[in-house]
Amino acid sequence: MIQFTNISKSFDEVKAVRNVSLSIDEGQLFGFIGPDGAGKTTLFRMLNSLLIADEGSIELFGLDPHKDYKKVRQIIGYMPGKFSLYYDLSIEENLNFFATVFGTTIEENYHLIEDIYKQIEPFKKRHAGKLSGGMKQKLALCCALIHKPKLLLLDEPTTGVDAVSRREFWDMLKSLKSKGITIVVSTPYMDEAGMCDSVALMQNGQIHAVESPKAIVDNFQKELLAVKCNDMYKALLTLRNYENCYNVYPFGEYLHYIDKRDSKPIEDINDCLLKHDLQEIEINPVKPDIEDCFIELTRKLSV
């Protein structure tokens, strides 16, 4: 089990992490979701002992990353946000290097990385600098896994990777989870939250909610409407000024609208938009997804 208790961390004037407390169960696939600058990387670096918290304490499988940093570093497989392998070494050389440095061999833990490594093995002589984003990420994952860590710590692994590769990557994580490895991932993509067992929504150094993605969505109690018409920008401005509007924001090709009242306001909104010369109006109730919940949470906190 991983336990954060009242963790805070500042860099000069910037409070990167503010009073964070949460716990992550062993064997979970846990996600930190939040925009850039939310404090995810700082939190990760405190967990893996590269940074020391200003306040609060962290416990990681019974160890303190501050005092027992040597032990902690052995049980963690860490993949930093930036691709941080050697561009001028080939796939094979990179993997061999990290295996040796962590006191193991590729053969010894091949079963762990087999599924992933097989995909990049045909290119094993190629220098890492010449790999595609998805391949780099697979290689980095192999290198982080090679010493059979108890905890896999992935900092924004899918940033800059195409949609198909992202999908594949999450499938890989699920299969790793089934091998008993605890996985902690951070991501700025809301749609990836659904893949986690549990997610923490993070913003401005604070944790807003720690729940399963399903519970987060279920907790969303407002009526959500998707609005579409011929001039979306004008519609957005119009609805923002509409007296009963609780919140409205662009969401893909629609606007997501929430009304202050509990009753179904579809007719009223339609009238309001017609009054402003908007046409081809289309209004439908929709189910909220995790992004709507995140927007709602941050709104609640900022008000």
């Binding site: 570093r73 963690i76 930036k82 941080s84 392998l85």
Partner: peptide
């Protein structure tokens, strides 16, 4: 600069 120092530090080296 590359960030590989982060990984080296985490390693048992």
């Amino acid at each position: 600069e590359l960030g590989s120092m982060e990984v080296l530090l985490i390693s048992p080296l």
